[in-house]
Each structure stands twice: as C-alpha cells, then as structure tokens.
Simulated assay, not measured.
Amino acid sequence: MTPQELRDLCLSFNAAVEDFPFSPEISVFKVRGKMFALSWIDAVPLKVNLKCDPEDAVRLRGEYPGLVTPGYHMNKRHWNTVVLDGELPGRLVRELVEDSYDLVVAGLPRAERLRLDRA
C-alpha cells in the first residue's frame, strides 16, 4: 500500500478528515474530532496506528509478528501499529482500517452517530 492509497482509504469513510496536530510528517485521520488512524506517511516502510478491539489486537500480533505490533506511543491495549510493506493482504489492511473507524464511531455520542448516518 502506498501513502496515497492509505490516505485515500482513510478519507473514504463518512466525515473522515486528515489533520497534522503533531507535525507535518504525521497524518492523523479523524472522524468527528476523534482519531482512528495515525501514520508517518513518509516512513519506509509505511506504518499506521489503528484502534483495535483488545482481544483482536493480541490475536493479530500473534498471527502477524513483526507486521502487527503494540501501538507505538499509544495505549497498547487498544492500538496496533501495522506495517504496510505489502506482506499483509490488502483486504486485511482495509478491514483493519475500517474496524478502527467503526470502533471510534461506536464510541461517539449518539447524536454524533446519528449525524453520520444522515450524511
């Protein structure tokens, strides 16, 4: 996956925006002000931090050692760092990004979720 493909995927979700609150090199993708993905967009290999269900996070780390690791500079129970160097199946990467977005949306106040449904 290229940086542009990651950016396009993250921005394809309803109300998703890209922000740079930490530095110009770190893309933060948010929905309604809440982060669902964080990437060092120019890093080689490309990496992204994604929110994950704690049980799934541990399982993924075991299934893909070295490619899925505890979230760098994040709550390691809820976040994974995913290496996007082409070794992980593209479908899995898309599912992980979508799951991260869905987890963040599920944690939004009901009124915010309803606004997303109408958009």
Rank of each mutant, 00 (worst) to 15 (best):
P3W: 07
L6D: 06
R7W: 00
R7E: 11
D8E: 12
D8L: 08
C10E: 08
L11Q: 04
A16E: 03
A16K: 03
A16N: 03
V17K: 12
D19I: 03
F20L: 13
F20D: 00
F22I: 04
S23F: 01
S23W: 02
V28F: 03
F29E: 02
K30A: 04
K30W: 06
K30T: 06
V31S: 01
R32M: 13
R32V: 12
G33T: 05
G33W: 02
G33A: 03
G33D: 06
M35V: 13
M35F: 04
A37T: 02
L38N: 01
L38I: 11
S39Q: 04
I41Q: 12
D42K: 14
V44I: 10
V44N: 12
L46K: 02
L46M: 07
V48A: 05
V48T: 01
N49V: 01
N49E: 01
L50D: 09
L50K: 07
K51C: 07
C52R: 09
C52A: 15
D53P: 07
E55Y: 02
D56C: 04
D56P: 00
A57V: 03
A57S: 12
V58R: 14
V58T: 13
L60I: 06
R61M: 13
R61E: 12
E63Y: 00
E63M: 14
L67R: 11
V68Q: 09
T69Y: 02
T69L: 14
P70Y: 09
G71N: 04
G71W: 08
H73P: 08
M74V: 02
N75D: 12
N75I: 10
N75S: 06
K76T: 01
K76W: 05
R77S: 11
R77F: 00
H78N: 13
T81Y: 03
V82E: 08
V82H: 09
V82G: 08
V82Q: 10
V83F: 00
G86K: 06
L88R: 07
P89C: 03
P89K: 13
G90W: 02
G90D: 14
R91Y: 03
R91V: 14
R91A: 15
R91W: 03
V93C: 08
R94S: 13
R94G: 12
E95S: 14
E95V: 09
L96E: 09
S100N: 10
S100G: 08
L103F: 11
V104F: 11
L108C: 10
P109D: 15
P109F: 01
R110S: 13
A111I: 11
E112A: 15
E112V: 12
E112H: 15
R113F: 08
R115E: 15
R115S: 14
R115L: 14
L116K: 04
L116S: 11
R118Y: 09
A119V: 13
